[in-house]
């Protein structure tokens, strides 16, 4: 279930945004202040935040800083009463996905929300894939890891065996094992997985 969190101090504004999203079959939750939102239990699902910039107490920009700092990953769409360029640049730099000016038209709001939700979705997907790859990586033995690092540079078995000072036959066994553990069938696939988690090939002279 996807949820849009609306944070705005004006109740009329909140209910109007909420209705508009509900009319487009998107469920919402409303908060009258940043503090209220912070007090809510953490949310694990897919969603995004529609955040008013000017609010009494903790301002929208401040809330963004806090959320980014504490590792929240919900994309933020800012809503502001009047366009303030320096403020919007600052917000975008900190990772806001969009900056909309009130009154916001449905034709602008819906694509922004949809994009934010998709963004969050792929963010979550990527992170689950990463977790999987990392789990597989950690199941490798020390020797298998060494062999893998050699292989992803494109080195043939013979060279790998040479570098690691082991027999070519042993190299072939390690290679078959690690490919199986990593759940891939070719070196090309292995390189792709390593790229996702950021494991880069080590240069030859490290060993």
């Amino acid at each position: 279930m996807e949820t849009v969190f609306i944070i705005d101090d004006d109740p009329a504004m909140r209910s109007s945004l909420s209705r508009l999203l509900r009319a487009n079959d998107i469920s919402t939750e409303q908060f009258s202040s940043a503090q209220d939102y912070l007090e809510r239990n953490s949310y694990d699902g897919i969603g995004c935040i529609l955040l008013d910039v000017n609010m009494p107490g903790i301002s929208g920009i401040e809330l963004q800083a806090r959320l980014v700092g504490s590792g929240h990953d919900l994309p933020i769409i800012f809503l502001t009463g009047y366009g303030n360029i320096s403020m919007s640049v600052e917000a975008m730099k900190r990772g806001a996905i969009d900056f909309l000016t009130k009154p916001v038209d449905e034709a602008d709001l819906l694509p922004a929300v949809t994009q934010a939700l998709e963004h969050h979705h792929s963010l979550r997907e990527k992170s689950s894939i990463r977790e999987e790859i990392e789990a597989r990586l950690s199941s490798l033995t020390e020797r298998e890891k060494q062999v893998m690092h050699e292989l992803i540079t494109g080195a043939p078995n013979k060279i790998v065996a040479d570098h690691l000072n082991i027999a070519v036959k042993t190299t072939k066994v390690h290679r078959a094992n690690l490919l199986q553990k990593m759940g891939v069938r070719s070196i090309a696939e292995l390189v792709h997985l390593c790229h996702i988690v950021g494991t880069e090939p080590e240069s030859n002279d490290t060993i």
């Binding site: 109007s16 009130k102 009154p103 916001v104």
Partner: peptide, 12 residues
Amino acid sequence: QPLAAMLGNAQA
């Protein structure tokens, strides 16, 4: 504020 609220409500 009221203008924005009205627009959202009308489109909803």
